[in-house]
Amino acid sequence: MNRSSGEYELPWVRVHGVQEYVDSPRILAEFPDIHVTYNLQPSLLWQIMDYVQISAQEQEKGGLYQYIGAIDDHLKWIWKLITDPASLSADERAKMQQQFFWINGYMFDDDGNDPYFDPRYAELNALKGARPFTDQELMDAAGLSLLWEISPELHDSLGISDLRGKSGFTKDDIIALISAQRTVLSQVVNDYAEVQAMGNELITSPFYHPILPLLCDRGWETEA
């Protein structure tokens, strides 16, 4: 988190939280005879819950905080796009055009009968290096990025499957996807509690990553 802005610069906790962090315990639950140990770091859990919980102060701010409890650069740019696209700088638009495709690209490959192939997202992915996107193309890229960040196994239960391959995303579509991501993030802790009850082990470690002292101690690499 950027302490000066109170916002996250990169979206990785949110992005992994709505796919891998929920897929792993869900898949494990299908194999009750297999037992694993998960290390859930406090700093990770804190960030996940930061996205889930909307404080009274955030509620007063309104805007994006009506739908999710934390903001990263991707969400900030998306909010500008759906409320005041003219406020986006050329640099922000260029970053959106590239970073909205920072994703496991299985939906870009047409294998003939792949239920996860998304022709519109693949079209935009192929186009992203050719010319600047229009506002609507950016809107579609934003919507499809938010959609496919979420585990496709959850699309039906969240009521968002009909957005696959869509061209012409609207503000309401984008808000629905942001709300869906918050819903998924709110399930993460409970999903791990459920597999713990099945005999799997949850452990933890110091609040921040254990290699943080190495990262902050300049010169360590020359002393090794």
Rank of each mutant, 00 (worst) to 15 (best):
L45G: 02
A142G: 11
S24I: 13
D114L: 08
E58R: 14
R131I: 00
Q181V: 11
G6W: 07
N104E: 10
Q136T: 01
R182S: 03
I82A: 01
S161D: 11
L147V: 10
L214T: 05
S179N: 06
E20A: 14
A29M: 07
I174C: 13
L44W: 08
L88S: 12
G159F: 03
R3A: 14
E137P: 03
D156I: 10
S161A: 00
K128I: 00
A70N: 11
M198I: 02
A70P: 00
D110I: 05
R164Q: 06
S179F: 06
Q57D: 15
L177W: 02
F101P: 02
I68V: 13
R93A: 00
I82L: 07
E7T: 05
Q53S: 08
E149Y: 11
T37C: 15
A70R: 15
Q19S: 01
D73H: 14
E9P: 03
P206W: 08
D84M: 08
A142R: 05
Y67V: 07
G165H: 04
N200C: 03
H209L: 11
S179P: 00
L81I: 09
N2I: 04
F31Y: 15
P25C: 10
D50N: 14
S179A: 05
A56C: 12
D135R: 02
G63E: 11
E194I: 07
H35V: 14
Q66D: 09
D191A: 14
I175H: 01
L10E: 08
Q97M: 01
D191L: 10
S157H: 01
D33V: 05
Q98T: 03
K166Q: 11
Y51W: 03
Q136F: 03
F169D: 05
D173P: 02
S161V: 02
D140I: 10
Y116V: 01
G168R: 04
S179L: 05
T222R: 13
R120F: 12
I34L: 15
Y51H: 12
L185P: 06
L202H: 03
P32W: 15
L215W: 00
I78E: 00
T134Q: 06
T183P: 08
Y208V: 15
Y121N: 08
P42W: 10
Y106F: 04
G143N: 11
M96T: 07
A90S: 15
H16W: 07
V13N: 10
L177H: 01
I103H: 04
L146S: 06
Q99P: 12
M96G: 05
E221D: 11
L127G: 03
L75M: 13
L154C: 09
W12Y: 13
Y67K: 09
D50C: 08
Q53I: 15
M1V: 04
T83I: 08
I71V: 15
G159R: 05
I178Y: 02
G129M: 00
A29P: 09
L127R: 01
Q187E: 08
N104G: 06
V22C: 13
I175W: 02
A122M: 09
P119Y: 04
S43T: 14
V36W: 06
G143K: 00
I34R: 13
M49P: 04
K76P: 07
L202P: 02
F100I: 00
H16A: 14
S5R: 14
A193M: 07
V189E: 10
W220L: 05
K166S: 04
Y208K: 13
E20C: 04
W79T: 00
G112W: 03
F100R: 09
